[in-house]
């Protein structure tokens, strides 16, 4: 099974926990006409990690690097969920039953339904199990 087309390139950005940092990141991406499709902020004591899925990851990465941000690419997957009660359970159960561990996750709910972005320990395994269970994964081309 070809799994590569389902692997998304998420950009993770290290950020201090103080006013204006998210604005600085968002401004940089806006200036380059980069669209943010999904994002989350993870917070620890005194700092955070901003994670974004964008339409032009390479360009975003370069821009942020040039401004001095610590950024890294991370492979994630995006699973379509039913936008109704129990939708998240269906996806989570597939992964749980397969012994795939979720490191972190965030979701969005748009016009075309709900999508769960997942960072998991075994990407290929997760993709195979999700597909064989009948759930749908977004393709990379949807984002970038």
């Amino acid at each position: 099974m070809e799994t590569g087309k389902h692997v998304m390139r998420q950009i993770s950005i290290f950020s201090e926990n103080r006013p204006g940092r998210l604005a600085a990141i968002a401004h940089a991406l806006g200036e380059e006409k980069i669209n943010i499709l999904a994002f989350s902020i993870a917070e620890a004591n005194g700092f955070g990690v901003v994670r974004v899925l964008v339409d032009q990851p390479e360009k975003a990465h370069e821009k942020l690097l040039s401004l001095g941000f610590n950024t890294a690419f991370t492979d994630v997957i995006a699973v379509k969920m039913k936008d109704q009660p129990g939708g998240l359970y269906d996806v989570a159960k597939i992964l749980g039953d397969s012994g795939v561990n979720i490191e972190y996750s965030y979701a969005y709910s748009g016009k075309e339904g709900a999508v769960l972005i997942l960072r998991v320990d075994h990407v290929d395994d997760a993709i195979k199990r999700i597909k064989s269970s009948g759930a749908a994964l977004l393709e990379r081309s949807v984002f970038h």
Binding site: S12, F14, A44, F47, V49, N70, A72, T74
Partner: peptide, 15 residues
């Protein structure tokens, strides 16, 4: 300041 190469994207690594 964190070294540019030190960042791994996981909160846990930073902790």
């Amino acid at each position: 300041e964190l070294n540019k190469e030190a960042f791994s994207n996981k909160i846990n690594d930073l902790m």
